[in-house]
Computed example of a mutant assay.
Amino acid sequence: MTIGELADRFALRTHVLRHWEATGLLSPAERVNGRRRYSTRHIARVAMIVRGKAAGFSLEQLRAVLDASDAAERRVLLLEQRAELERRMEEIAASKTLIEHALECKAKDFTECPGFRKLVEQLANGPAVAPVETGELRGHLPG
């Protein structure tokens, strides 16, 4: 696979792959007639880099996982990354709950709505906001 084909496959620009090679994140491709040729091993590694970056991990964190000396070390790193993803997913779910309430709230100012304020209080008291049943708190006017 050429550099252009690999880049297209993951919606990347070719300079990104060159940068990853230069920094050691991606092993250099074999050269055929002076042109880079990537293997299935490269494809798998690029997939992990792309998905890891989308999940918010740094290139250094990804390098540590991809270049771990053994399976046990890799497992520890992956468990740490999974825990961080789970924490972020809880934060995203809490944000989504607040946004959904604001979208459906009938109050003139949703920040004055008792239901919204209850969600904010829950958020302040813990890491996650429990989803609210449709209509349970929505549409309440400040009282």
Rank of each mutant, 00 (worst) to 15 (best):
F110T: 11
A107I: 02
C105G: 09
E91A: 08
H101P: 00
K106A: 13
T111D: 14
L98F: 07
E90S: 10
H101E: 06
A94W: 10
I92L: 10
F110H: 13
K108E: 15
E104I: 04
K96T: 06
M89R: 13
A102H: 01
C113K: 04
C105N: 03
M89D: 15
A102C: 09
A107G: 06
L119D: 02
P114S: 15
E91L: 09
A107T: 10
L119Q: 09
I99S: 10
E90R: 15
G115D: 00
E90F: 01
H101V: 01
R117G: 10
T111K: 14
C113D: 08
D109K: 11
K118W: 13
T97K: 02
F110P: 07
R117V: 07
E100Q: 09
E112R: 07
C105I: 00
I99F: 08
G115L: 11
C113A: 08
A107Q: 01
A107C: 13
E112W: 01
S95F: 05
E90D: 13
L98T: 04
I99C: 11
D109E: 13
A102I: 06
K108M: 06
K96E: 06
A102T: 04
C105T: 03
E112F: 07
E112T: 06
T97L: 04
L98K: 10
T111W: 08
K96A: 12
P114H: 11
P114D: 10
T97A: 12
K108D: 09
G115Y: 00
K106G: 09
C105K: 00
T111I: 05
K108Q: 05
P114C: 09
K106P: 02
E100K: 12
F116V: 03
T97G: 04
E104Q: 11
E104V: 00
P114E: 08
E91C: 05
H101K: 01
E91N: 08
A107S: 08
E112G: 06
A93L: 09
